[in-house]
């Protein structure tokens, strides 16, 4: 691998994706419909705003048609120090998008010696989703949720996207993927503005549990194998994943409260 140098007029600047294109490393787009091909799909993810941050959560199931292809994939990732991304849709392109997005933010920060603003990150993701539109039309749709703590205005912010790259900022909560209807309803009923992150983690856990009861593509907590949804809080301290044992405890509390009622 040689040192990439460019003439001033061809320089890609702090844009990592443009750099990959210049180096011929950009992923190719599919050129035929893939409706017959059963590709892996990542399913339900949710994000809820709370006091001073956002709670993000995603179940662990991936499906291919009617089969469960993975029972422990992860759909919630850190994007930058103060932001996180959760994905639903075709798992392969989605993972690639997450990886590129993370690298894009890191690359920008290193080249420019300052991190990209949260607004800039949200717009950047919008462009990436839009660039995936031809693939989405072939059956490889990727729809992310993006949340972060805006260090400039000191609030948690939450964005959802559609396949065309449309970027919609949500004030309360958002859900994506096959179980989004059920998860969204549970969250809507339990949501309170300015609740603590702790309360909203419980709400996210309960929403995923209820969704798993209604939607086959959403995995519930697996107490036998010890597989639990990925839950993370994005706040002033940055992106912090909630420990698996903590999530397990919350599930056991939830189950116990259901037994008592």
């Amino acid at each position: 691998m040689r040192l990439p140098t460019f003439a001033a007029q061809d320089d890609p600047g702090p844009n990592f994706v443009a750099l990959l294109q210049a180096a011929g490393l950009a992923p190719p787009l599919p050129d035929s419909a893939t409706n017959d091909l059963s590709i892996t799909h990542a399913t339900t993810v949710v994000a809820i705003r709370c006091a001073n941050g956002v709670v993000m959560a995603g179940d662990r199931r991936a499906t291919a048609g009617h089969l469960i292809s993975h029972s422990s994939i992860e759909k919630v990732f850190p994007a930058d120090r103060h932001s996180g991304i959760a994905i639903a849709g075709a798992a392969g392109p989605a993972m690639e998008m997450v990886r590129l997005f993370q690298l894009q933010l890191e690359h920008y920060e290193k080249v420019e010696c300052r991190p990209l603003s949260l607004e800039g990150q949200a717009n950047q993701l919008s462009i990436m989703v839009r660039n995936n539109l031809p693939a989405a039309l072939q059956g490889f749709a990727v729809v992310p949720l993006f949340a972060g703590y805006d260090t400039a205005s000191e609030v948690g912010r939450l964005f959802q996207y559609d396949v065309t790259g449309g970027r919609y900022e949500e004030r309360e909560h958002a859900a994506m993927g096959s179980g989004s209807l059920h998860a969204g309803t549970v969250i809507k009923l339990g949501y309170r503005p300015d609740a603590t992150p702790d309360e909203m983690i419980d709400l996210a856990v309960s929403a995923l549990y209820r969704t798993a009861e209604e939607d086959t593509a959403t995995g519930g907590p697996d107490l036998v194998r010890g597989i639990f949804p990925v839950v993370a809080v994005v706040g002033p301290e940055g992106f912090e994943r909630v420990d698996d044992t903590d999530v397990e405890r919350r599930f056991r509390d939830l189950l116990a409260s259901m037994d008592n009622s």
């Binding site: 691998m1 040192l3 990439p4």
Partner: peptide, 17 residues
């Protein structure tokens, strides 16, 4: 600074590949 940026590009592309 040009060398610095070329180095970041080289490292990020290598890490990606």
């Amino acid at each position: 600074d040009q060398l610095r940026i070329a180095g970041i590009r080289h490292a990020d592309m290598k890490g990606y590949t």
